[in-house]
Amino acid sequence: MTMWALQSWSAAAEDNGVVHKAPYKILYIMSYHSPWRWTDGQLEGFKEGMADASVEYQVFQMDTKRNSTADAKDKKGQEARALIKSWQPDLVYTTDDDAQEYVTTHYVNRALPFVFSGVNKDPKNYNFVGSKNIAGVLEQEHFVQTINLLRQIAPGVKRIAAVFDSDAMWEPVMARMREYVTQIPEVEIVAWDRFQTFGEYQRKIKEYPGQADAIALIGIFNFKDAQGKNVPYQDVLRWTAENSTLPDCSFWIDRVHYGTLAAVTVSEREQGLAAGRLARAILVEGQNPSSLPMRPTVKGHAVVSLARANKLGIKIKSGVLLSAEVIKKFDWDQ
């Protein structure tokens, strides 16, 4: 089953919809790297979604937080496509946007089935909608819930400065934030700032107390140092926790481990679980990928940093602590 014909899905199911073929070969192409909770958690969820199907996995890391230039991403995309050609998987699982742009888009309406998760951009941008061989799971932020959680912790928050690096992947996130902030009439986003260098970011963080009550730390992966190299996002967050006097929020749990005050996170497990169920429907049940809906996961997970609250002098109410996962120490103090 390593060479798929597009018409095969309609005729593949046998014995009440079950296709007897194992082990399946699944190639997992991550935009980022491992070990990391986001990428590893998606794979764990995916395996859970595949249930009892026998699968041989291979993993390819594009590592685009370090390989962040267009040329470097293109090179990693070429390596991934070469691996697809040589290993001939039954299905490719791709996570986050870089893998879609540099890998999956080369296979639209081709024979090999693809399942994606963690995608921020509209799948129409990749020509995925209507493609016969592509299904997937969208990543959409829990913006309103995150701001409500932040305001439970810091009730005085009304003006928020939103921070992004220069990567185009944040544009749809910004658009959704602009839309959803209208649901919270007490809150205004007073700055939509994009930075290329870590120095620019550091200077602005120190200026925000005169302009805003809180900071939304969204795009922080591609700040450059004086030598033009990427500053690891963990270093960005540690500097922020040690130097910023404002409460802050984001949408991902790893940010809270590295000092961000609060988030209602997109669950990496839920993203992978939904993708794994799609892959099982394609491989085991013989369903056509184009018949499977592309939609986001809806379950969020509240997380707060007690360490950051203590540093900011904020006392979090017991009801908030009881309803959220509590990170008691900064990651660098573990």
Rank of each mutant, 00 (worst) to 15 (best):
D225P: 07
H301N: 09
K204G: 08
T2M: 03
D63E: 13
N222S: 09
K124F: 04
Q234T: 04
P155Q: 02
Y126G: 00
A53S: 10
G228N: 08
D248M: 04
V181I: 00
T240S: 03
V231I: 15
K73G: 02
S68Q: 11
N230D: 13
A5T: 14
D254H: 11
F223G: 04
M1R: 13
A12T: 04
R280K: 12
K299M: 05
K73H: 04
A175L: 14
Q183K: 06
G300A: 03
L283R: 03
V181T: 05
V256Q: 11
N125F: 11
K158P: 02
W38V: 15
S86A: 11
V326L: 08
K328I: 00
L138C: 04
D248E: 10
L246R: 10
P289R: 05
A263D: 07
A82S: 14
G49Q: 03
W239K: 10
Y208F: 01
Y258S: 14
T260F: 00
E56G: 04
A111T: 13
N230M: 14
N125D: 15
R277G: 09
E285C: 06
A154W: 04
E242M: 10
Q78G: 09
R308D: 08
G156C: 03
Y126N: 07
V55S: 06
P289N: 03
E171A: 09
M294R: 08
F116H: 04
L217W: 05
T95L: 01
A274C: 10
R295I: 00
K73L: 01
A191G: 07
Y233H: 14
A161G: 15
K224V: 12
D74E: 12
Q202A: 14
S244K: 10
Q287F: 11
N310L: 07
V18N: 15
A11E: 13
R66S: 11
L246W: 02
F221W: 15
A161C: 14
G156R: 15
I253M: 13
W170Q: 12
R159I: 08
R280Q: 08
E268Q: 10
V284N: 00
Q88G: 05
A262C: 02
A82V: 11
G286I: 04
D71E: 13
N120G: 01
V326P: 06
D248G: 12
L292R: 13
A241L: 06
Y57S: 09
G77L: 12
L292P: 02
W170Y: 12
E48V: 13
D90Q: 01
K25S: 05
G49W: 00
T2W: 11
Y24L: 09
K65R: 07
D63V: 11
N67W: 03
R151D: 06
Q152G: 05
K224Y: 13
T197R: 03
N125K: 14
D254N: 13
R37F: 09
G199N: 14
F143N: 00
